[in-house]
Amino acid sequence: MIGWRGYLQVGVGSGLGALSRALVGQAAILALGSAFIWATLAVNVLGSWLIAVVASRAAYRPHGISARWYPLVAVGFCGGFTTFSMFGLEVIYLLSTEQTLYAIVYVFSSVVLWLAAAWLGQLSGRPTKP
């Protein structure tokens, strides 16, 4: 069971994660004219990569920085940075505007990229010399 310190770490991390996600959204608006889909895909792929790096490092060094700050960085920041609800909403929006093919492509490419990013993160979080 996680105590109040864990909740505090997760709360602060998640707040910073949400703020960073909004910054990515603003950057996408500046660069592409809209935050739709690309910003969500970017945060979800980056967040999946980062959580796997931190989890992998924490697993190899149970008393290292990654392990101690796991609630802040992984559960908090990565959790707040990524968003499933916006992904779901975007899929519904595409379906409701009869862009069914885009919706299907978005769903399948998203899940493949999320998992590929996490897999790469797992690899890069491993120590290079055993």
Binding site: N44, G47, S48, V75, G79, T82, T83, S85, L115
Partner: peptide, 8 residues
């Protein structure tokens, strides 16, 4: 909601 934990 979260995607990172789902992936991991």
């Amino acid at each position: 909601t979260t995607v990172s934990s789902f992936s991991l």
